[in-house]
Design a protein around this nucleic acid. Sequence first.
DNA 1: TATAATTCTATTAAAATAATAGAATTGGTA
DNA 2: TACCAATTCTATTATTTTAATAGAATTATA
Lengths: 142, 142
Amino acid sequence: MRISTRSRYGLRAVVELAIEGRPMLLKEISGRLKVSMKYLDHIFSSLKRAGIIRSIKSHSGYVLSKRPSKIKAIDVIKALEGLSFVDCIESPQICNRAGSCATQVLWKRLKGVVEKILDISIKELADIQRKLNVRSKNMYYI
Amino acid sequence: MRISTRSRYGLRAVVELAIEGRPMLLKEISGRLKVSMKYLDHIFSSLKRAGIIRSIKSHSGYVLSKRPSKIKAIDVIKALEGLSFVDCIESPQICNRAGSCATQVLWKRLKGVVEKILDISIKELADIQRKLNVRSKNMYYI
DNA sequence: TATAATTCTATTAAAATAATAGAATTGGTA
DNA sequence: TACCAATTCTATTATTTTAATAGAATTATA
C-alpha cells in the first residue's frame, strides 16, 4: 500500500495553486516541486481531464477550475491513481465469496476510513500549509 | 492504492487456519483459496519468517504460531507487502519540506486510520467469518 | 510571424507484483 | 534403510504498474 508519486506531486501542486490563488506556469510549479516539467505535464493533463484545474489561454498558466473549498483531496487521488483497494467491492460478482467473506468486510472498512480522511478540501489543506509556512519561517528567529 | 494479492491470499489463509484450529496442508489451503500451491508457498514462507504461522514437522501442515487473538491483520499485511505510504513519514530527512508540509500531515492521518482499522485480531476476523458462514448456509433455506 | 507556453502522442525505463519451475530437504514409516 | 509426501529453498520469468523522457503539434498574442 503506497501513495504514488503522481498523487503526491499532483496534490502538492493543487495545494500550491490554492495558496497562490493566481495562474501559475507549469515551469514555475515544476521548479517549486522539483519535478520535471514533462512529468508534471502528464499529471496536469489528468487533473485537467478530471476538471480539477484548467489552463488560461496562452502563456498564462494553470489555475484551479473550482474554488479550493469545492475540491477534495480524494478527487485528486482518484484522478491520478484511483482508489480501488480490491475489485470485489466494486464488482462482487468476480468472487463467489464476496458478501460472505470476513476479509472483504475488512477491505470495506479500510476503504471507508480512507475515503473519510481524504474527504478534506484543498482549502483546508491550504490553510494547514499556510500555518506551517508561518511556523517554519519563524523558526529562523528562535 | 491497492491491496496486493499476496496480502489478500495471505490474510484469507490465516483466517482459514484460525477457523479450522488444526494443522492444514498447503495443498488443502491452496485448494480452498483457489491459489496455486507454488504461489501460496511463497506467501507462507513470508508468514513463517514473520512468526505468524509455523509448520508441523513432516506431512502435518501449517498452524498459526500464536493464538488468533494475538495476531493482528496488520501483522499479516506488514509481513506480505509493508505499509509505507510515503517515505517522508519514516525518514523525514529525505524531504526538506517534511515537518512543514500539509500533504505530509494528510499522509500521516491516512497512515493512522489505516493502522487503526488493521489493528483487528485474527480471532475477530474468524468470528466475523463464522457468522457469515452460518448466514450464507441458511440462505439456501429462504 | 516569432515565441513561449500548453498539449498531445509515443516511447522507454524501472520497479513492483504475480506466478511458475525444479530441486533439496525433512522426518516418519513401510 | 529406502521410500514418500510433504515442506522449503533458490532461481527464473511474465505481467502490470509506475515513473519518466522525447519530440512534435498547437495555440493565442505581442
